[in-house]
Amino acid sequence: MFEGRLLQGSLLKKVLEAIKDLVTDTNFDCSETGIALQAMDSSHVALVSLLLKDTGFDHFRCDRNLALGINLQNMSKMLKCAGNDDIITLKAEDEGDTITFMFESPNQDKISDFEMKLMDIDSEHLGIPDTDYQAIVTMPSAEFQRIVRDLSSIGDTAVIGVTKEGISFSTGGDIGKANIVCRQNTNVDKEEDQTTVEIHEPVSLTFALRYLNSFTKATALSPQVTLSLSKELPIVVEYKIEKMGFLRFYLAPKIEE
């Protein structure tokens, strides 16, 4: 059987909120090392990769590898019934066709069990090679969210450029143009307000803002976001999940015809 008890249940709620509009159905791959998920969006342009390590759970048991086929809208409905401070336990039998979500209130005076039907999903996993990216930028996640939202009101695509000076976001549309530059900034008081740039080579790529906007629904998971870019490769937008792992989004760049 599989069982995972997560003291900070709100993390799972946030993960679902971040991906439920991008991906419809997906397998949660459970093994003794944790829970992993990889799924493409319906237009096959973006890829989501989630890792929740066993060590981040208060209790974790997985007797044999399970692929739990889940409709994310339905799981989101179930998790919305958990309080933000609740402890959430996931349970599934090896041969079962349901998953149980147990919610415990912080002072243990309310225990709720929600059972959700699983589905059979044929999933194709893509191999993501280890890449030495040309540029890696870490910046406040709320800042990235704001920039992407602001640019979306002006254009459909953004050019993201990284030089040793910083990262720039540019767009254009019927009403005009916009260009935002965030400079490397390591002198701020709080580490989470820093913008850092690691660069091997300047890089500039074009992306659809609609997807970048969707990725920023993960902002609540982490105060910082890491953007990794290389010429003619998908951008990686990574939100680290404290003590547990990460939620990564990959987006294919637009290419000149």
Partner: peptide, 14 residues
């Protein structure tokens, strides 16, 4: 003109 390729163009199936 830009074209939006699929993600599978960059990452092969396992």
């Amino acid at each position: 003109k830009t074209h939006q390729p699929a993600i599978s163009r960059f990452f092969a199936p396992k």
